[in-house]
Amino acid sequence: MSFTCSDCGKGFTRSSSLQRHQSVHTGERPFTCSVCGKGFTRSSHLQAHQSIHTGQKPFTCSYCGKGFTGSTDLLAHQSVHTGEKPFSCSDCGKGFSRSFSLQRHQRVHTGERPFTCSMCGKGFTRSGSLQTHLRFHTGEWPFTCSDCGKRFTRSSDLLAHQLVHTGKMLFSCSDCGKGFTRSFSLQRHQSVHTGEKPFTCSVCGKGFARSSHLQTHQSVHTGGKLFTRSDCGKGFTGSTDLLTHKRVHTGETV
């Protein structure tokens, strides 16, 4: 017997898998962290997340000793050492260590953005990205640096920022030696050397290294102002421009 999602037509072999999948469409996250309030679709994801607060990392890489909060993260990490990426994109050939990473990547080619902001209409490929984006509208910055007091919308941004104080740069570019605090920042930087611009405007054909830059560019054609300041009503094409303008009202300096 198969179970099919009425929203997207995806099939599942178990009803429990279908129920879990439906949270992609409903946005429901019934498992909430008691420390920071972050929500999750699965209890196992909540348990793994809680180690961020406790610092516990029970799964250790036998190659380099790096610790992980979950066994899945450890298996994915080990591909860094083995080079194994069993899941390949049929469109561009890019390999991935996890099947869900491949599924998420394929949205680059299809343009699918199933998670939409109810306030400004901006679309996202990940539900987590939508949740983070919503904080730009609500003004919520729940993660604070204990060293300098700077606030962040995501715990990962806080952890990356704290390396500014420690001076650690965990990821280095093999072409120029530049260091980065995050692996995805290194991957994004490497497009400087390769010239790769995978995000293309369907109107004028201009290419971009980041999907966010493409979205901002598209407002040139539509005339849309995606981000609006509630105090004065002024509109901006990008969230960064909105945050910069916010300082006019708050008097905050960089």
Rank of each mutant, 00 (worst) to 15 (best):
K122Y: 09
S239V: 02
C173D: 02
C33Y: 04
K94I: 06
H49F: 06
S2F: 14
H189G: 00
H109C: 03
H49A: 00
D157I: 00
C89Y: 06
T216F: 10
Y63V: 15
F236W: 04
K122G: 07
Q19R: 15
K178C: 00
H193M: 01
F227S: 00
T228E: 10
P114S: 06
E140G: 07
L46S: 04
R229I: 11
D147A: 12
T144I: 11
F12Q: 02
G251W: 09
G9I: 00
P86M: 05
D241W: 06
K225A: 04
T82R: 11
T125A: 15
S118E: 11
T60Q: 12
H77D: 02
P142L: 03
S146V: 07
S51M: 14
T4Y: 09
R104M: 12
T250F: 09
T228A: 12
T82F: 07
C5W: 04
R14M: 13
G195L: 02
T237E: 05
T200M: 12
Q47G: 11
S174D: 14
V24L: 15
F227M: 01
T138N: 07
G207I: 02
T244C: 15
Q190M: 07
S97D: 09
Q218E: 14
S23K: 15
D73P: 08
L226E: 03
S185Q: 11
V220W: 11
K38H: 12
L46E: 03
L186D: 00
E84W: 09
E84R: 13
Q47M: 11
T138K: 08
T41E: 10
R229S: 15
D157E: 10
H245D: 06
F208C: 01
L163K: 14
F96Q: 06
R151K: 14
S88L: 15
K246N: 12
H105G: 05
C61G: 05
E196N: 06
M119C: 12
Q47A: 11
T41A: 15
H213W: 10
R188Q: 14
F12K: 06
L18Y: 02
A48M: 05
Q103A: 09
G177P: 10
K10A: 05
V35Q: 13
H249A: 04
V220K: 11
F87V: 02
T26Y: 03
G139D: 06
V248P: 13
S79E: 04
F12A: 00
F68H: 04
S172M: 13
R188F: 08
Q47V: 13
S90T: 10
G27W: 07
G65Y: 06
Q106S: 06
E140F: 08
G233M: 05
L74P: 09
K197F: 03
F31R: 05
C173I: 00
G55S: 01
R14C: 08
S16P: 09
S90A: 09
R247G: 04
S212V: 01
V248K: 11
Q78S: 06
K94V: 05
S211P: 13
F59I: 01
